[in-house]
C-alpha cells in the first residue's frame, strides 16, 4: 500500500463521516438549553468515604471464584497438620525425582 492509496482512503473516510454528520443533524437537530451550558461535575473532591466503594470486600469475588476460603480453612493452626503436609510434600518430591529421573 503506497502513500497515494493511503491518502485516498483517508479522504474517502472523511467524506463518509461528513455525510453521516449532516444526515444526523437533519434527523435530530440539537437544541441548546440552560443545563447543557452550565459547569459539569468537575473540580469537586470525592473522597473514599463519600464514594460507596466496598474496599474490604472489593476483590472477594476473586477469592470466591477460586474457592480460596477452603485454602484458608486448611491453615487452621494445628502443628500436627502442618507437619503432615511437610512429610507428604517430602514423599511427593522423592516420588517425583525417583520416577521421573
Amino acid at each position: 500500500m503506497d502513500f497515494g492509496t493511503t491518502l485516498a482512503a483517508f479522504g474517502i473516510t472523511i467524506c463518509i463521516m461528513a455525510f453521516a454528520w449532516r444526515a444526523s443533524r437533519r434527523v435530530a437537530p440539537g437544541r441548546r438549553s440552560k443545563g447543557k451550558e452550565s459547569m459539569y461535575a468537575c473540580g469537586e473532591k470525592l473522597g473514599i468515604a463519600d464514594s460507596n466503594v466496598p474496599v474490604e470486600s472489593f476483590y472477594a469475588s476473586i477469592a470466591n471464584a477460586a474457592r480460596a476460603d477452603r485454602l484458608r480453612d486448611a491453615h487452621n493452626g494445628s502443628l500436627s497438620r502442618y507437619l503432615t503436609w511437610v512429610f507428604a510434600g517430602m514423599v511427593a518430591v522423592m516420588a517425583f525425582l525417583l520416577l521421573l529421573g
Binding site: 484458608r72 491453615h75 487452621n76 493452626g77 494445628s78 502443628l79 500436627s80
Partner: peptide, 9 residues
C-alpha cells in the same frame, strides 16, 4: 501443641 492455635488463616 493443639491448644497453641491462636495463629490461623
Amino acid at each position: 501443641a493443639d491448644k497453641l492455635r491462636s495463629l490461623r488463616g
